[in-house]
């Protein structure tokens, strides 16, 4: 008898299979015998790591240890025992707050500006050189400047998020607005629609899918950048947590943080995916 499986069932099975393989390889790689091999490290490296490389304290966690950590950390995500010992929920909340703050500020600037650029050739040509020049700059390169002028670590991180979120939203908004179908603009012209109503009822919905794509890209970049930014500024946040746990030589916690960064990033992306679906239209 042949079993008929749907596409998603097949994919689901394959995913589970892949997960099992990963667990298996992981388990094999972290077997006690493997550690003996691991202990046989380059002496220079061992010296560099202060002997830590060979000690089992910092060794790579087994899947079981990882599962234990996951359970422990997630069952109490919001505890706060001082600056170096906060629950993962609190750290993520700090990071999210910075990302959302910077992202929101960027949206407030980028969307109206993108509207103006998309609507006017003159404006477009005037602003374009600046955009082209500023866009390729790594957002982290702004950090010293931000720290110097703002003089506040957390606000500097928000500024860096602001800068990196700005460009995709600005460019996509301008592109979406500039490419609104002529027909729709002609319709609103023949109906003598006033400029404000035209902006909100015609151009905005027409450009919304493109604008949302820009927001989604921005959010993705912002979430990438926040980890690095918080490693630099320290104090709180998931980036700081990763760096701190590395200094504590707790690979288990680093791995756990990496997993959480992935989960939150995926959640953020799917929120924008859903929003994108809501404003999408089929021509």
């Amino acid at each position: 008898m042949k079993m008929k499986l749907s596409l998603s069932q097949k994919a689901g099975l394959l995913s589970l299979g892949l997960f099992a393989v990963i667990l298996l390889v992981w388990q094999l790689a972290t077997l006690p015998e493997a550690r003996v091999v691991a202990a046989d490290v380059d002496p220079e490296y061992a010296a560099l790591m202060g002997g830590g490389a060979a000690s089992s304290a910092s060794s790579f966690p087994t899947p079981a240890a990882m599962a234990q950590t996951l359970w422990d950390k997630l069952s109490d995500p919001f505890y706060d025992n001082g600056p170096n010992d906060k629950g993962i929920g609190i750290q993520l909340a700090y990071s999210l707050a910075r990302v959302l703050g910077g992202f929101f500020l960027a949206a407030v600037v980028a969307i109206p500006l993108g509207f103006a650029i998309g609507n006017s050739r003159v404006f477009y040509q005037a602003i374009n050189p600046y955009v082209q020049l500023l866009k390729p700059i790594s957002p982290l390169a702004w950090m010293p400047l931000a720290l110097y002028t703002i003089k506040d670590a957390s606000a500097s991180a928000i500024f860096v998020i602001f800068i990196c979120s700005l460009w995709p939203m600005l460019i996509n908004t301008a592109h979406g607005v500039a490419n609104v179908r002529r027909d729709w603009l002609d319709v609103s012209r023949t109906l003598e629609v006033n400029p404000l109503r035209k902006a909100f009822r015609v151009i905005l919905p027409a450009a919304a899918p493109t604008i949302l794509t820009g927001m989604r890209i921005s959010m993705g970049i912002a979430w990438l950048v926040i980890v690095a930014a918080e490693m630099l500024v320290g104090g709180t946040g998931i980036g700081y947590f990763v760096w701190n746990e590395w200094n504590n030589l707790s690979l288990t916690n680093v791995l756990f943080a990496i997993l959480m960064i992935g989960v939150v990033g995926m959640a953020l992306d799917s929120v924008f995916g859903l929003l994108g679906k809501r404003v999408a239209y089929q021509e």
Binding site: R181, D183, W184, D186, V187, T190, V202, P205, A206, A208, V279, Y281, Q282, E283
Partner: peptide, 14 residues
């Protein structure tokens, strides 16, 4: 002057 466009020009989100 009402215009009927060849491409109908309806707004697809409405």
């Amino acid at each position: 002057r009402g215009v009927i466009f060849q491409s109908h020009a309806l707004m697809p989100w409405l």
